[in-house]
Design a binder for these strands. Structure first.
Lengths: 198, 198
DNA sequence: ATTGCTTTTGAACGCTTGTTCATTAATCTG
DNA sequence: CAGATTAATGAACAAGCGTTCAAAAGCAAT
């Protein structure tokens, strides 16, 4: 279907989501008004409602898009040995999150501003991601290459540690992302009790 | 100085701070109105201004109180060997934070709602806490008992991992706090490359 | 130029926001 | 009981909130 006549929607629509993303991350969902988003786009507040049914959907769509992309790009195929899979996970998680600081910030900070139904959906996606890491840890424990006392705790501990990178990492800072990945991989590998490769 | 006459302030005052703490943690600073806090206390909104000059001070006082208490209870004296000091830190951090889920939540989530001057003060306190842990890691590296490539990164990684406990731990859940402390200590000890004690 | 469709404006809606303050009520001292 | 002091009320303020919608403006094809 050809694009409809007289349409700017495919230009303004993305700009609305982009402005909402930036402002929500910077000031928080509750502190950002529809008028502030509209001003960032260069439009009046009423025009936003051509692109979102309401403010809540704007937040939810941003979060769901982020979580969906996270799950689709992660490799939980199970190919390779547990140590390799864990290394790939650590590198992926750090790089993916470092590329999207605003999305990550929103996904972790604005959960409480979701309607109950929307919250449940986002939580389910997050759970699937955690389960992907936990499967790696369980396989490693089964093979005797990881020392895992409680796979759920270890999963959450690793994710918290890795996501913490986003609170301080800035491109162009003291350390390159390669160095960051290397050092976190060292810590994670030791934390799970894996023998150092020689 | 004796207490002034006709005063309820020493009853209502703490209740105001307590209500603000609970509501800020649950819904977020920007989403909580002064009227909502007043309703929780059982009072009209105007009465709150007998106990705080404004809403911002309410948030700032809660955060500063939390950080001050954290620093005053932490043991950064330097007594003992680095491995013992690190173990004490891990246990202290987990227990202190588990006891104060609302304060911790606010201290991490509401930083962006602080006025610039207030933000700077809280950040300075947080920095002092991080420096306390970093000193332990540096001493351990100096003694050759820890494998520390970058003490700043390792400091932030450990704190992120430990603070992550608060996102899932609930008293009376599957695991006791003793078990949680034990498992996180295992992971931290290995992550810093310390040899297991025998 | 006129028609038909899409997008934006700009005003308006009822409601909530943080904060102030004169007034009232409650309590303590003597 | 009288007088002093403190705490709480309740109304008011200007400003901002999310959302709606008739009207205007912009554009493409005839």
């Amino acid at each position: 279907m050809a694009r409809t006549t007289g349409s700017h929607a495919d230009i303004t629509g993305p700009r609305v989501r982009q402005a909402a993303l930036r402002l929500f991350a910077q000031k928080g969902y509750a502190a950002v008004s529809m008028r502030a988003i509209a001003a960032e786009v260069g439009v009046q507040a009423g025009a936003l409602y051509n692109y979102t049914p309401d403010k809540q959907s704007l937040l939810f769509d941003l979060m769901r898009g982020h979580m969906t992309e996270l799950l689709s790009e992660a490799d939980f195929s199970g190919a390779g040995n547990p140590l390799d899979r864990l290394r790939r996970f650590v590198e992926f998680h750090i790089r993916f999150h470092a590329d999207r600081p605003d999305e990550v910030f929103i996904a972790y900070m604005e959960l409480r501003n979701l309607d109950p139904a929307n919250f449940a959906e986002i939580e389910a996606l997050r759970r699937r991601y955690e389960d992907g890491l936990e499967a790696i840890l369980k396989d490693g424990a089964r093979d005797g290459v990881f020392a895992v006392e409680d796979s759920k705790i270890m999963t959450l501990a690793i994710i918290a540690m890795l996501t913490g990178v986003n609170t301080w990492f800035r491109t162009g800072g003291r350390l390159s992302l390669d160095q960051v990945v290397g050092q976190y991989w060292d810590m994670v590998r030791r934390a799970v009790g894996a023998q150092v490769e020689r």
